[in-house]
Design a protein around this nucleic acid. Sequence first.
DNA 1: GTGAAAGCGCTAACAC
DNA 2: GTGTTAGCGCTTTCAC
Lengths: 327, 327
Amino acid sequence: MRRATIYSIASTVGVSPSTVSRAFSRPEMVKSELREKILTTARELGYAPNRAARGLATGRTGVIGMLVPDVANPFFPPLIRAVQDAARQKDAELLLIDSELSVNAEQDLVDRIRPQVDGLIIASPRLPSKQLHEVLRGMPAVIVNRSVRGLPGVVCDNTPALQEIADHLHELGHRRIALLRGPRAAWAARHRAKAVRTWAEGKDVELVELGPIEAQFADGRAAAQQVAESGATAVFAFDDLMAAGVIAGLSELGVRVPADRSIVGCDDVLLAQTMTPGLTTVAAPFTELGRASVEMLSEILAGRDSRTVTLPGTVTLRGTVGPVAAS
Amino acid sequence: MRRATIYSIASTVGVSPSTVSRAFSRPEMVKSELREKILTTARELGYAPNRAARGLATGRTGVIGMLVPDVANPFFPPLIRAVQDAARQKDAELLLIDSELSVNAEQDLVDRIRPQVDGLIIASPRLPSKQLHEVLRGMPAVIVNRSVRGLPGVVCDNTPALQEIADHLHELGHRRIALLRGPRAAWAARHRAKAVRTWAEGKDVELVELGPIEAQFADGRAAAQQVAESGATAVFAFDDLMAAGVIAGLSELGVRVPADRSIVGCDDVLLAQTMTPGLTTVAAPFTELGRASVEMLSEILAGRDSRTVTLPGTVTLRGTVGPVAAS
DNA sequence: GTGAAAGCGCTAACAC
DNA sequence: GTGTTAGCGCTTTCAC
């Protein structure tokens, strides 16, 4: 039992294939009565357009590619979900590629899927800007969660939220604060570090910079010792995963959160919501990030060019921040 | 600057397009010297085969579809990663579809991507078996994390691991144990409940069945009240997310884990590893599950038929289980 | 408003 | 070993 095509529909309805094609792609060009008939029998025959064929003919495949460094990093699933949802609204499919944290792979992978997608959404690429430009040459693409000069992107600015939390910490009496930095190559890490640094300037606060370390649970946990020794009463971790690691490591050292130490994460990833106590963090607008990326990609595909979009993170107070312990 | 095709390569090398085609798909059929030359200029021209075209010609698209109920549920990302990785080994791409927990969508979605993929991997479908059979008719597919009679699948059997943990609980003195059941429509929920029930039979243990409830953090949290009132000293939650919810809810009621209550989850999802204390659970073999699914799909595509594969979960003792509290 | 025909990039007989 | 040709399912001029 072969799949229905415009030909099988055409012959059962008694029209030409082109008419069937038009009934789908240019409905206004075919008389409504005929169109109804075509659409009906199409449904009966279980017809679904073959995108590959359509793509060959039009040069548009109807699929957008999404490249992420690691699907299992909790930052990406909500983003993928949002992108996938937005894509669906636009009647596009999503081809997902995981570079498995390999910077080299990013290049090859992009080349590889180039012909099968209309455009690409690249989340948190680690490739140096120059190479990124090269790889993306001639390919409609938008970068999410990193700002690269000359490339369309959508990013989240956590600066105000981070600083608001810092103020909060200050009010609670914290005067020695640790900044546990994320991966050196990560744009977000530099950006967030800067936000905290800027805030601390000229305040009666000592900022202890730790790291950079990888944004993994294990690395955060391993860094707990340093955090403990730093004498800081509060710590900004690069992201939630790292924060969770620090909390775990601290717990092993017998220090309690938030009783002995306050911890703040970033992103508001699922595990930040599900841990007990909940993690104080700044929430990334995943849905908007995803929607904006797809929107921007469509703009580019439509030949309009667009500028970088910046969306704000929002303060999310939960249970890992408290007043500085009386010692 | 158009993309390179076998034609552009053919004309610059001075051979026919078919030779170029063969150099890629049937390397042994073209003289090695010539092949080298072709491959080299292909690289120079930045050629990548157009899969859509290839797919049209061969009937094989080289992409496999994966349908998940919710990318953001922490169970799926590791599975997606494994599938994506296994697919890559086989030189296939991954089209990801999120049904967003809508049972109706499952049907439409399958129909929609049918023409663009060679086969489908469906994770944890909620559709009744009968409809599942219908939808999948004529489509190479494998079901992951659910066993459906007559459909190839790969599942995880947590029974021995769950029972081993139950024994452990028993040794620790627990005699009244709650079973917080998962979604009624979920195969895994029934399967896990059965494991615990079977274990409890004939033992000096009282099993209190709670639920079924949705496998969400919020639902677990809401169920904490019931758990507390049940008088159980230990609880088996359907999965880790639910377990995390119960712990959060219990905490609000002032009951501590594991001091006052022991909790065990299932799956060993990221958040189980990152919470403090770590969650005692049974780990799903994500990598093997993914690899096996892809393997099975290839078998089916190759015309061989295959039976259901069952992989064991493994006991993962962490910090949420302890001796029954002296009261 | 509808049909005929060419062509998208590739593969697969079939010749040579 | 390599070239020729037809055709995969669709869109899109161009006629009618």
